[in-house]
Amino acid sequence: MNAIIQCENITHYYGNRLIYENLNFEVMPGKILGLLGKNGTGKTTIINILTGFLKPRAGVCRIFGEAMERLTPAAKSRIGLLLEGHIQHTYFNIEQIEKFYSRFFPKWKREAYYELLKRLQVTSTQKISAMSCGQRSQVALGLLFAQDPDLLILDDFSMGLDPGYRRLFVEYLREYITAENKTVFLTSHIIQDMEQLIDDCIIMDYGRILLHEPAAHILNHFRRFRFTSDADEIAPADGTLWHTEKVGNNWETYSFASAADVQRTLADGGAAVSGLAEERLSLEDAFIGLTGKY
């Protein structure tokens, strides 16, 4: 099966600041991939590269087998793009924007758009500029549903939404992508929302991919371990432990390894530990464990 998205050896700088070096990843058909990273790790940058709005210093991304810089109209019609902040053409009203987009997409589903907007307290002649961010997010989502693309690229879809609209957005999106077997590449700074949606997860660190695993693998195997120790410093001996640090009088560390292996690794490092307790983590906690708090 051919990958829907392929990124090969992407290297990019802003001025002299390295954003990525040799970034590689793929998204297979029907998968929902979430891109997580702290501010400034280049989440929007990769979306800009993917959609052809940024030329990287080196490397190539392909969508449906086409290089991102020269996507054909046919390929573009199969990609639904949601810009950060649910940006839309705000000079249109609800009817006009549907009329505008409908002529570009062969599979346009007018009813999908109006079905979603029926639940908003807006009139069909209301201008998008006069809507709240939450209402605009529903317009943007309705337009994506009507376009019926094979691939959705959603940049920070939670941005500016209150909890109600976030929940609404996630629920509609989840229902749609599950029913229609869509491929999705998304970012959000609210990891709780991602947890409900994604199959696979890329966690970015500054300049590189820290981890690319199925979300279920992270949730099932990545653990926080709390323990006590008299040691002033515990230096992880190998790559088994992540972000081992003292919190008050106790210590904590994160690992994919079992409790026994963690105990052994700590002992091998010369730390006398006691009361090792293992905790399951949410994706957000796992993200903190992998990237650190700072």
Binding site: T51, P73, K76, L83, I87, H89, T90, F105
Partner: peptide
């Protein structure tokens, strides 16, 4: 100016046309 505000031109250039 409305196209450049919030880089809305991206939406226009993403339309399935050359």
């Amino acid at each position: 100016a409305p196209e450049m505000q919030n880089k809305r031109l991206k939406l226009t250039l993403h339309l399935p046309l050359n």
